[in-house]
Nucleic acid binder design. Structure first.
Length: 271
DNA sequence: CAACGGACCTGCCTGC
DNA sequence: TGCAGGCAGGTCCGTT
C-alpha cells in the first residue's frame, strides 16, 4: 500500500487523537512482522505520553519522550484509531491502548511492516540512516537529481524509487510522475538533461501533494485512520491502465516489467 | 560503488 | 469446482 501520501494521510489522521495521550497498555497478538516486534514493547510503552507524531520517508515516528516508536506499514499495513471494545479481525497484530479507552490498531496481512523502538534520536536508527531527502522539501529539486544521476545507467524509474536518492516515491507515483514529466521510465538516469530533471522534480512534488489532498491511493488494502479508503485512485493517469487510451494522445498505454515492477507509460508522450 | 535478483508473506485473480 | 501460477503499494540483503 503505502507510499508517502498514504503514510502522510495516516499520520495526519492519527496525530490529533494521540497528542498528549498516555499509553496504558499494548497488546501484541502476532509479533512476527518484517522484524520481530520487541518482546518488551508493552513495558517500553506503557505509561508514556505521546508528544508528537512525525514522518520520515515512509516511517511513522511516535515521540514518546525518552524514546520513539518507529512504525512502517510495508505493503499492506494500516493504522486505525478505534473505540474501546472493537474485537480484533484477522491480521490485527498490535493494539496500543490509550488513556481515553481508544486503541491505535496495526493491521498488516502480509506482515512486511515493522514496529520498532529506539531510545536514541530516530534519525540515528540504522533504518533511517542514509535516506535521501524528502521529496516535498526545498532541498529536493531538478538540480539535485541531475547532479546525482550523472554516470548512472539504471533506468530513471529505478533511480527515483531508490530511497537513497529520494524517499517516498513508490511504484504508483513513480509511474505517474514520469508520465507527467514526459520521460520514458526505461531511459538511463545518467542521460537525462537538467531541464527534464527539473520537470521531473516538479512532477514528483505535484503528484505527491495531489495524492495527499485526496487521502492517498487505495488499490486494495489501504485505509486511513478512520477506516476509509483514499480517493486518488480515480486520479491516476497511467498506473493500472495498461492497454487503455493515453490521457494525453489517445494511443494505447504500454505495460512492461522494469526491475520486477509493473511499469506503464505512453510511448508517444514519454521519451 | 552501482545494478540486479531473490527474499520475506498473504490474498486475490486468472486460466486450465 | 479446484488448483497452480502470477501478481500486488516496500525494501533489505547478497552477489556480480
Amino acid at each position: 500500500m503505502p507510499e508517502l501520501p498514504e503514510v502522510e494521510t495516516t499520520r495526519r489522521g492519527v496525530e490529533p487523537h494521540l497528542l498528549d495521550r498516555s499509553i496504558v497498555g499494548v497488546v501484541v497478538r502476532d509479533g512476527r512482522l518484517r522484524w520481530p516486534v520487541p518482546g518488551d514493547l508493552p513495558g517500553l510503552l506503557t505509561g508514556r505520553r505521546i508528544a508528537a507524531v512525525r514522518r520520515r520517508a515512509k516511517y511513522l515516528l511516535f515521540d514518546c519522550g525518552g524514546g520513539h516508536l518507529i512504525v512502517h506499514l510495508g505493503m499492506t499495513g494500516s493504522l486505525r484509531l478505534l473505540e474501546a471494545g472493537v474485537p480484533p479481525a484477522p491480521h490485527d497484530h498490535v493494539d496500543i491502548v490509550l488513556d481515553d479507552g481508544r486503541a491505535l490498531r496495526f493491521r498488516d496481512p502480509r506482515r512486511f511492516g515493522a514496529i520498532l523502538w529506539t531510545a536514541r534520536p530516530p534519525g540515528e536508527h540504522v533504518l533511517l540512516q542514509g535516506l535521501g531527502p524528502e521529496p516535498l522539501d526545498g532541498a529536493f529539486d531538478g538540480g539535485y537529481l541531475h547532479g546525482l544521476s550523472r554516470g548512472r545507467t539504471a533506468p530513471v524509474k529505478a533511480f527515483i524509487m531508490d530511497g537513497r536518492v529520494v524517499v517516498g516515491v513508490g511504484n504508483i507515483y513513480a509511474n505517474e510522475a514520469l508520465f507527467a514529466a514526459g520521460i520514458r521510465p526505461q531511459r538511463a538516469a545518467g542521460q537525462i538533461s537538467a531541464l527534464r530533471y527539473q520537470r521531473l522534480a516538479v512532477a514528483i512534488k505535484a503528484v505527491l501533494e495531489r495524492a495527499i489532498a485526496h487521502g492517498g491511493t487505495t488499490l486494495r488494502d489501504f485505509v486511513d485512520s478512520t477506516g476509509k479508503p483514499g480517493y486518488f485512485r480515480h486520479e491516476l493517469q497511467v498506473y493500472g491502465r495498461g492497454g487503455e487510451a493515453c490521457p494525453g494522445c489517445g494511443r494505447a498505454l504500454r505495460e512492461v516489467r522494469l526491475g520486477q515492477r509493473s511499469t506503464v507509460y505512453c510511448a508517444q508522450c514519454q521519451r
